[in-house]
Design a protein around this nucleic acid. Structure first.
Length: 477
RNA sequence: GACCCUAUCGUCUAGAGGCCUAGGACAUCACCCUUUCACGGUGAAGACACGGGUUCGACUCCCGUUGGGGUCGCCA
């Protein structure tokens, strides 16, 4: 039997990080088995439904690179099938109308709690005497669930989980207004869509028991369930907006790469021996359900950063430049030109070694395309003493006559100046860095100068207050 | 409250009864590399929650305690 998995988010907000992991696991499982991965929007609650939320979810999935098979299904659009299923159960006597009011139900729960019993509907309308049916009250439809025995789930992650049927109550299938509930819709859709494996958050484990009963009542074998533990925040508490319950687009905006998220989310609760860096191809080849851990995992921003650094270093230079251009444009208030792009591209290798996120990369890259005068970091400014400026003046003289403008030649020139003056190389290199970048930290400074080119390098030195011999600068090539 | 799940370094995890002197990764610290910062390299510190069993032998199996989580809607 071919595997069919599904991701079934309710469109209430964005694709949060936990949902993204659930989607990833479903996607990986389907791809691993050469099966189908479908997307179903659980929008039975029309009041909460919004198209922008649906878009946020599909955009998030696309950005993550999780492609689904076929068109996304709207659960709301399938309501007729849900109602028909409920009616079949009504007709066969597997479901019944319930006239209990909300007040009655609340009272029932209160009493059950007080008595130390599970807070569940007691089934009082099951065999209600028709003469006691209140007039004018539209009933809900409830499943006539088994009252004795037990329901068993052989969960692919949690193992065999058993619950006594007297702990479960008769769930509502159709609301008083005849609209289907989530429970009904999910089961009917999973049957009709041929879902073989339901991989979802741990919070649905107890739902799985009642859904199993519904599958049976509907005469369909339940799918394989796999309930994966929820993700917690760094403090061990439930994920909140404060730390990680952000949409994946927030991670994108913070400058994380989709491959980073895929790798990180995969390793959160799943392992393949000692492997840490796992490509998506490897993940598809290796992924399995019994490798999924059973305990909730905490999000670790430091590890995410580290992984992102790895994927940035491995990323293509041109792609990275493209990724940071919009940020740079808005930071600079102008549109970068071809010369800027060229400079960034040549400087990217040194730049990408030093950043954890695209945002950081953009910040660090800015000096390459800044116009003069450079914004000086106070620490950089303090490096440009009179003595340093005169050192740089000697260096500039050598730079202007350098027959070859290469990293090695530039470094040789700096070393020669340092030697002439009896200085350590750092005494030459650091002021040079300050003058060229406006900062005390940057990629290798000779690499920077090489990328900048002779004119720009000398221009920046002059702008920083370095005396340049006019006769020499006049002979620049 | 009832029911269910869960428990290895700070964090993510490896570990399927002897391979464990409990391994890796991130983070931390030290040293090396070095013009800065990173990267990289070497090394250090750091965990089987607790208590009972089972067994010749438990991180691994069972029970309990404690801690963490989840669910108990005419929400999804």
């Amino acid at each position: 039997m071919s595997v069919v998995t599904r991701f079934a988010p309710s469109p209430t907000g964005f694709l949060h990080i936990g949902g993204a992991r659930t989607a990833l696991f479903n996607w990986l499982y389907a791809r691993h088995h050469g099966g189908q991965f479908v997307l179903r929007i659980e929008d039975t609650d029309r009041a909460r439904h919004s198209q922008s939320a649906v878009d946020a979810i599909t955009d998030g999935l696309r950005w993550l690179g999780l492609d689904w098979d076929g068109e996304a299904t709207s659960q709301f659009a399938r309501r007729d099938a849900h109602v028909a299923a409920a009616e079949r159960l009504l007709a066969s006597g597997d479901a019944y109308p319930c006239y209990c009011s909300q007040d009655e139900l609340a009272k029932m729960r209160e009493e059950a709690r007080a008595a130390g019993r599970p807070m569940r509907y007691d089934g009082r309308c099951r065999d209600r005497d028709p003469s006691t049916v209140p007039a004018g009250v539209p009933p809900v439809t409830r499943l006539k669930a088994p009252q004795s025995g037990e329901t068993v789930i052989d969960d692919a992650v949690q193992g065999r989980v058993v619950v006594r049927n007297d702990q479960l109550d008769d769930m509502v299938l159709l609301r008083a207004d005849r609209t289907p509930t989530y429970m009904l819709a999910v089961v009917v859709d999973d049957i009709d869509m041929g879902i073989t494996h339901v991989i979802r958050g741990d919070d649905h484990l107890t739902n799985a028991f009642r859904q199993t009963q519904l599958f049976r009542a509907l005469g369909a074998p339940p799918p394989v369930f796999a309930h994966v533990p929820l993700i917690h925040g760094p403090d061990g508490a439930k994920l909140s907006k404060r730390h990680g319950a952000l949409g994946v687009e927030a991670y994108r905006d913070m400058g994380y790469l989709p491959e980073t998220l895929r790798n990180y989310l995969l390793r959160l609760g799943w392992a393949h021996g000692d492997d840490e860096i796992i490509s998506t191809d490897q993940a598809v080849a290796w992924f399995d359900l019994d490798g999924v851990g059973k305990a909730p995992a905490r999000l670790d921003p430091a590890k995410l950063d580290n992984l992102n650094g790895h994927y940035m270093r491995a990323a293509d230079d041109v792609a990275l430049v493209e990724a940071i251009v919009p940020q740079l444009n808005s930071a600079l208030g102008r549109t970068l030109g071809l010369a800027d792009i060229d400079r960034l591209t040549r400087g990217m290798d040194g730049l990408k070694q030093r950043a954890k996120t695209l945002s950081e990369l953009s910040d660090n890259a800015q000096f390459y395309v800044s116009s003069l005068p450079l914004t000086m970091d106070p620490k950089a400014q303090s490096l440009l003493t009179d003595e340093a400026l005169s050192t740089l003046s000697r260096l500039a003289a050598r730079f202007s006559t350098l027959p070859e403008w290469s990293i090695a030649a530039l470094e040789d020139a700096a070393r020669a100046v340092a030697e002439d003056l009896g200085l350590k190389l750092g005494k030459v290199a650091q002021p040079l860095r300050a003058a060229l970048t406006g900062a005390t930290v940057s990629p290798g400074i000779f690499e920077v100068a090489a990328v900048l080119g002779r004119d720009e390098t000398l221009g920046r030195l002059a702008d920083a207050g370095v005396a340049i011999d006019d006769a020499l600068t006049g002979t620049l090539d």
